[in-house]
Design a binder for these strands. Structure first.
Length: 561
RNA sequence: GCGCCCGUAGCUCAAUCGGAUAGAGCAGCGGUUUUCUAAACCGCAGGUUACAGGUUCGAUUCCUGUCGGGCGUACCA
């Protein structure tokens, strides 16, 4: 429709002359129904170039369009309004065709093709295996997975990847924590000590590291290892680390599965060391004079990328900082040939990823393929108090606990309904008790209600097979609902393009609102057969839109509630 | 100090890459069920979009500055 109008208006503008060759026609959907279905602001933008008033220009375009003329099966009216907007009304004939297209597209309705033949890699979660996934990881996991789903719906072949490091200091401390608990299993009378500060003091076995991991799962891992009867060499700290990693990864995997998330690959940071790739990168930076030695460390000239100071690539101990493997990892992704590379990071990475992207670019790669989605932190609120979260101190709420309390669908929806770049306040008390006011139920309920009507129609032997005469739909809520349903493909592609799933969540809510308004004023069962048939078609199309939209968000669309 | 994000109704948040009268939910007040699922619908009230300038036909949106909140700013990841 927009493409059609675009062509027609260009024809008129050509006729008028004086229009700059780089002029871009823009359309928008007015929020106010009095302003029609589609608006064009060309007249206002052209006012300066044509040295005429915007209203005058709009009138000229309007009469130009009318003499073409416009196809009345598509556009029913053109109006000039406000400061010079051209407002178009879509004809009902076009709406009925669109509705029938929705029904025939079925499960595929909402798919678009801008990504056809292209590949995308979405990296997300990427939590090191030091503990269970927390609520904070949840936002990352759900955002990443949903962005991947959105890209799939726009035609991309998408892979989901989890990047992790099991070789760093964190993991060493984790292994030592398990070892200390294991020693307590061997010798229940082992001497203990207190660590932590103030009221947070905790009693732990003496070998426990000062900055060790305090969660209960550490003791569980130690106990499982002990119960297995395996003879463990206490000097083999790595054995404890491996035990912990294995168990924790298994749990993380189970949590992700429960959320409907499936990773296609796990990328171990260590492979970049084993292959020697990271050392080659240093040499390549040296060749470009972007790396140098100082104080026994190897530095990257991030000042060349506009930073205030240079940063260390390899510590004087010979150990690289995370920047180096991150650059190597992203080069690896680019070399794997993806058209789009999406990273989902928490706000704490905001200062570091530019170094990585610029480093990749400096080595001659197309860093523009890398898109970084930064989301702000989740503040957990319990009893009106913000909960300070730390995996190490075990002051966290796990994703599993959250799903136990509010369910998988609510958990996913909660993380998706807000823009990634605003802080998300997660009120646990509200989430627990507010299951009846949660917007996700509103969407699911609308879907269930439609299914209920269709079941009932079948029960009383109403005809749902023969094609309906859609032109019988004329009530304003019916027309408004059809227009709303037509927006799914655009909303999905927009959300995919911007990496902002909340747009789709908001749109679906509007669909549900439009449906309940229709439902409130138009009956189906009990109406004349042809009217009921048309309305059932509209209801089915609505259910299809809700179902498809919810499936993009990874949320179920139940048939009854 | 510097970098990034944010500041919108009492609360939690939207606002179509600058558009028309800034919208929802919750909370508040008042209505609506002999009718397909009331987990609903309708109405009322609630705003100087933190503040001050600037850019233009037009600013919540872009620019500058101020104030306030968050996250970074390690030879931690």
């Amino acid at each position: 429709m927009q493409a059609y109008l675009h062509r027609q208006i260009l024809l008129v503008l050509e006729e008028m002359g004086g229009v700059p060759s780089d002029f871009m026609l823009e359309f928008q959907q007015p929020g106010n129904p009095e302003h029609g279905d589609l608006a064009c602001n060309a007249a206002m933008q052209l006012a300066r170039h044509l040295k005429r008033g915007p209203k005058q220009i709009a009138d000229a375009i309007k009469s130009g369009l009318e003499t073409l003329p416009l196809d009345s099966n598509k556009i029913s009216s053109v109006e000039v309004a406000g400061p010079g907007f051209l407002n178009f009304r879509i004809s009902n004939a076009y709406l009925f065709d669109s509705l029938s297209d929705i029904l025939s597209a079925g499960l595929a309705y909402g798919q678009t093709h801008s990504g056809d033949g292209k590949r995308a890699l979405v990296e997300f979660v990427s939590a090191n295996p030091t503990g269970p996934l927390t609520v904070g990881h949840g936002r990352n996991a759900v955002l990443g997975d949903t962005i991947a789903r959105l890209l799939q719906w726009t035609g991309y072949k998408v892979e989901r990847e989890y990047y992790f490091n099991d070789a760093g200091r964190q993991m060493r401390v984790l292994g030592e924590s398990v070892k200390a608990r294991f020693m307590a299993e061997l010798d229940p009378k082992i001497a203990t000590k207190m660590i932590g500060e103030g009221e947070e003091k905790v009693e732990v076995p003496v070998p426990f590291p000062e900055d060790g991991y305090l969660g209960d799962y550490i003791a569980e891992i130690a106990k499982e290892l002990f119960d297995s009867g395996e003879t463990v060499d206490l000097d083999d700290t790595d054995r404890f680390k491996r035990a912990a990693e294995q168990k924790i990864f298994a749990e993380i995997g189970a949590t992700l599965t429960r959320m409907g998330i499936h990773m296609d690959s796990y990328f171990n940071e260590r492979s970049l060391y084993d292959s020697g790739q990271i050392w080659q990168i240093i040499e390549r930076f040296r060749e470009k004079e972007l790396a140098y030695d100082k104080d026994g460390a190897i530095w990257l000239k991030t000042t060349a990328f506009g930073k205030e100071a240079d940063t260390v690539l390899v510590k004087s101990t010979g150990e690289p900082t995370y920047r180096l493997p991150d650059i190597g990892y992203h080069i690896d992704k680019i070399e794997r040939g993806y058209d789009r590379i999406v990273d989902v990071f928490g706000a704490d990475h905001i200062a570091t990823f530019p170094d990585v992207v610029e480093g990749v670019r400096a080595l001659g790669y197309d860093a523009d393929r890398i898109e970084v989605i930064i989301y702000q932190f989740v503040t957990l609120v319990r009893s009106g108090q913000a909960v300070k979260m730390s995996t190490r101190k075990a002051t966290y709420v796990t994703l599993d606990e959250l799903m136990d309390e509010v369910g998988e669908d609510v958990t996913r929806f909660f993380f998706l309904m807000r823009s990634p770049n605003t802080h998300l306040e997660f009120d646990l008390d509200l989430a627990k008790e507010a299951s009846d006011t949660n917007p996700v139920f509103y969407l699911q309920y609308a879907h269930a209600r439609i299914q209920s009507i269709l079941r009932k129609a079948d029960d009383i032997g109403m005809d749902r097979k023969s094609p309906a005469d859609l032109s019988l739909l004329s009530h304003q809520t019916e027309i408004a609902l059809i227009k709303m349903l037509m927006g799914l493909p655009e909303n999905i592609s927009k959300a995919a393009e911007l990496g902002e799933p909340h747009r789709l969540a908001n749109y679906l809510r509007e669909v549900a609102v439009a449906f309940t308004q229709f439902y409130g004023s138009c009956r189906i069962i009990g109406e004349a057969e042809n009217v009921a048939g048309a309305r059932m078609a509209l209801a089915s199309a609505t259910a299809q839109v809700l179902k498809n939209g919810l499936s993009v968000l990874g949320i179920s669309a139940p048939d009854r509630m």
